[in-house]
Amino acid sequence: MSKKNSEEFAKKIRLKTIEMVYKAKASHVGGALSMVDILAALYSGILKYNPRKPKWNERDRFLLSKGHACTSLYATLALSGFFDVAELDNYAKDGSIFLSHASHKIQGVELSTGSLGHALPVGCGLALAAKRKNEKHRIFILLSDGELDEGSNWEAILFAPKHNLDNLTIIIDYNKIQSLGNVKDVLDLEPLSGKLKAFNWQTIEIDGHNHEQIFNALSTLPKQKGIPTAIIAHTIKGKGVDFMESKLLWHYKSPNDEDFRNAIKQIE
């Protein structure tokens, strides 16, 4: 799919995401919106998948580590044909499988996540299994910046290059805001690229909303044989809705009627 199509796809994901959060009076819209362009690119030309056979063995495995931002993943999967878009209306309703953190009970979701720092170690296991079985599929993991505080991630970051997991790519949604403040004020990650390089990762920095840059970064993997790749995607929390952009408040707040109308108008 082309960059233009991917941008159109991102717009549809954003609209659906905001609708889900609004209807469910849910949280985490800011972090869901910051990763939409990355999801749109992944599911419109990068990942190998078949929505009719979600467990097809040759598929690429995508794990969302920042499970709290699952609304935009659910929207992406529905719009990619994994299940009916109408099912998204069940999001966060009593008895629904559409939990407010990514749930593996949903077609296309590989791993339940919600507690941070879990998907990358599991992804190392998936990547190691592929290597040991000589299978060619790839593993992509989308992490938040705040969850890089978790030591478990750094255990895995140490592990992957040592075991030559070049079938593993992490994408860091670096929107610069975590639960209680700016990343640089809570636990500064900088120099992030330097840290990952020092851990022997191939590292690329991109604008996480520029589809051409996202496609370029994700189309030529691995960057170096035998070495895993880390893509640091600089993003904006709440991207696409001006009053949500870079605002800590939208880690928590759900849109009221007026917020919802304004947000939809801006994206359309």
Binding site: L120, P121, V122, C124, G125, L126, L128, L158, F159
Partner: peptide, 21 residues
């Protein structure tokens, strides 16, 4: 596999390997 002195990662890796059979 010797996962090193890193039990959280070791257990996550075990989960990933188990997912793959």
């Amino acid at each position: 596999l010797n996962a090193g002195v890193a039990e959280q990662n070791m257990t996550g890796i075990a989960a990933g390997l188990a997912i793959e059979g």
